[in-house]
Structures are given as structure tokens and as C-alpha cells.
């Protein structure tokens, strides 16, 4: 079970309290009727589904009830950042994937094993 930080409650809460709500930063046009078929298709149907960093919406449905945005790595499920609805999409360069894996919060040198070499040996 993931821990997710609600940017409104300002604390980490268990995943059970939240509901996923699809990709973020897809604004509904104030002139919906003016959209061409292609534009509507992009707005409603086309989603990125990336392997890696995704910006997505969550709702703290069993908590404060607020919708918010999150930047998550779909490979590791690591939440890089959560932020309030309406705030600008964060700069992607702030979150270049870290090595080793996204969850490691210690340097490889701090771990008590040697890092595998490129050949796979120790």
C-alpha cells in the first residue's frame, strides 16, 4: 500500500484513503462547442500512459475530499511530488530519474554491497 501526501492535509496518508482520477493537466475548454472532432478526441480519449513519469489526478476521497495532482513514476510507483489542483505543472527537469532506482534514498556507497558492474559481476 502506497503512502500518498495530500497537499491539502499536508500529511502522508495510506493509499486506501485516495482514489485515482486519471491524467492531470487536461483542461476542459471554455468553448467546448467550438472544438473540432480532432480536438475533442485529444481532449477526451487520448492519454499518454507513459512508462515513467506521469502527471495524474487523485482525490483524497476518504479524507478532505479534495482533488489534487501528483507526479508519479509508473515503473516504481514512487510519488515524486503532489500539489494542489490549479497549480502549474512542475518543471520536469526538477525530477530527472535518480539512480539507482527511484525509491532508494541512500547513495549506493552507503549501502553495504558493491554496485554490480556493467558486466553483471560484483
Amino acid at each position: 500500500m502506497l503512502l500518498i501526501r495530500c497537499p491539502y492535509c499536508e500529511e502522508e496518508r495510506p493509499e486506501l484513503e485516495f482514489r485515482h482520477a486519471g491524467e492531470a493537466h487536461i483542461a476542459r475548454s471554455s468553448e467546448m462547442t467550438e472544438l473540432s472532432d480532432d480536438e475533442f478526441e485529444k481532449f477526451f480519449f487520448v492519454r499518454q500512459n507513459p512508462k515513467g513519469l506521469i502527471f495524474e489526478r487523485w482525490r483524497h476521497i476518504h479524507g478532505c475530499g479534495r482533488f489534487f495532482n501528483a507526479a508519479r513514476d509508473t515503473v516504481t510507483d514512487k510519488f515524486h511530488l503532489t500539489y494542489k489542483a490549479g497549480e502549474p505543472k512542475p518543471e520536469i527537469t526538477l525530477m530527472a530519474p535518480a539512480e539507482p532506482a527511484a525509491w532508494a534514498n541512500r547513495e549506493p556507497s552507503e549501502l553495504n554491497v558493491d554496485m554490480p558492474s556493467k558486466e553483471g559481476g560484483r
Binding site: 516504481t76 539507482p100 532506482a101 527511484a102 525509491w103 532508494a104 534514498n105 541512500r106 549506493p108 549501502l111 553495504n112 554491497v113 554496485m115 554490480p116 553483471g120 559481476g121 560484483r122
Partner: peptide, 22 residues
């Protein structure tokens, strides 16, 4: 991710993904 240690012919912890240690 495990890594194969040729010298001892066994898989050992290689790359860590979480805050753990073996």
C-alpha cells in the same frame, strides 16, 4: 535487482530499490 557473482556462482543483492539493506 540481483546480480550474479561469478566467483561464488550465486545471485546476490545488487541494486536496491527501497530503503533496505541485506
Amino acid at each position: 535487482k540481483v546480480a550474479f557473482d561469478d566467483a561464488t556462482q550465486r545471485f546476490l543483492p545488487g541494486q536496491y530499490a527501497q530503503d533496505c539493506v541485506s
